[in-house]
């Protein structure tokens, strides 16, 4: 998983969805969902705009493991 959005910390402000340059984060109801994890660029824009600290990055084995 790339950007991981905590469903408990997310307050649904929508900024990560709004500013994701790759269109991989979408709002679903009141929370933001990483809908296309394989397409994440890991640019960090979502985390930069999250005032709740709901976004963290986890690097899959195909990245950190090689």
């Amino acid at each position: 998983m790339p950007a991981v959005i905590s469903q408990t910390k997310c307050t649904g402000c929508g900024l990560c969805d709004l500013f994701c340059p790759i269109d991989v984060i979408h709002m679903e109801g009141d929370v933001a969902i990483m809908r296309y994890p394989d397409e994440c660029w890991h640019c960090g824009a979502c985390r930069l705009h999250c005032s709740k600290g709901a976004v963290t990055f986890e690097f899959p084995a195909s990245m950190a493991g090689i």
Binding site: F19, P21, G44, A45
Partner: peptide, 13 residues
């Protein structure tokens, strides 16, 4: 195509 606040090559800095 995205949002001008964070788009293109320098989106993240």
């Amino acid at each position: 195509k995205a949002n001008i606040v964070r788009s293109g090559a320098i989106a993240g800095g």
